[in-house]
Design a protein around this nucleic acid. Structure first.
Length: 275
DNA sequence: AGCTCATGGCGAG
DNA sequence: TCGCCCTGAGCTG
């Protein structure tokens, strides 16, 4: 379930449980045995997230770089620590908590310089308060690529995934197929500001909710519902269901090997800003 | 038991 | 653009 909000939450959760104290590290699965041995018994000094990349800092300095990919999961537990199952890539154990990492795309020890190289190739992250949305705008405003594809490109914006892209485009009434160069600066600023707020809420609640209070099924006098992925959303994975606002069937189509969802009425072709 | 699908990303062609 | 890597849940039988 990893979009950027999950990773920022995990960074905070790791520091809360392990920060400032030595941790035990092991790789029951075996694929990270060497790395785990190098940080075993070392204090965790800091944690950080940029987009979907998680960095666990140890004195040295060295970093454990984790990317969950589509399937990866990090789960926490408290002592007593149960025996790990054989798919656990990395287990960290502190005084009263442990964390199990499974199925990541990446779990590797990296240097400061290697970490910096990752930051350098990622776009601004709405959850990193110092990041500048104009860096993204510079590329979006010159691009002939659709805004739906641009939002998923981590070099342009870091941390947005398939749920936030669908939802933020719906919330702004923007056709996913609109080209980057046809967006206005004001539209981009509004999208960025909205992403920052939605994702901050996502960090707080550890789930993605995007439906405005006045549009909840209850407020609209509809049947209460539960979306598959655990949050309340307008369009994500709601193909063929009626749009919450206009009853049009939500559409879906593969775009860059991911499923795109949108409402063709609320997000009309080349919808003029503010009209 | 086997299939499909999932909130990602990379490299080959 | 495609195939591939990582895992587990939820179906189908």
């Amino acid at each position: 379930m990893p979009e950027g909000h999950t990773i920022h939450r995990l960074a905070a959760d790791h520091f809360e449980r392990f920060g400032g104290r030595p941790v035990r590290a092991s790789s029951p699965q075996g694929k990270f045995s060497d790395g785990a041995a190098l940080i075993d018994n070392h204090p965790m000094t800091s944690t950080e997230a940029h987009g979907k990349h998680l960095f666990l800092g140890f004195d040295g300095p060295t970093w454990v770089h984790i990317h969950l990919g589509l399937f990866g999961k990090l789960g926490f537990g408290t002592t007593p620590v149960p025996p790990p199952t054989d798919t656990v890539r990395l287990r960290l154990t502190g005084e009263d908590a442990y964390a199990d990492l499974r199925g990541p795309t990446t779990c590797a020890l990296i240097t400061d310089a290697e970490k910096q190289a990752i930051h350098d190739r990622l776009g601004p992250d709405p959850l990193r308060t110092a990041d500048d949305p104009d860096r993204a705008w510079h590329r979006i405003s010159r691009s002939r690529t659709t805004i739906a594809a641009l939002l998923m490109d981590q070099k342009i914006v870091a941390g947005v995934g398939n749920v936030y892209r669908a939802e933020v485009l719906f919330r702004h009434g923007i056709d996913p197929y609109r080209l980057g160069k046809d967006l206005t600066h004001a539209e981009w600023d509004a999208i960025w500001t909205d992403l920052a707020a939605l994702m901050r809420e996502g960090v707080r609640n550890n789930r993605i909710d995007t439906v405005r209070p006045e549009h909840t099924p209850e407020a609209m006098g509809r049947e209460p519902r539960k979306d598959d992925h655990g949050g309340e959303v307008y369009v994500y994975r709601r193909a063929t269901m009626p749009c919450l606002l206009c009853d049009t069937e939500i559409r879906t189509t593969p775009l860059a090997s991911r499923n795109l969802f949108w409402c063709p009425t609320c997000q009309p072709n080349s919808s003029p800003p503010g009209a």
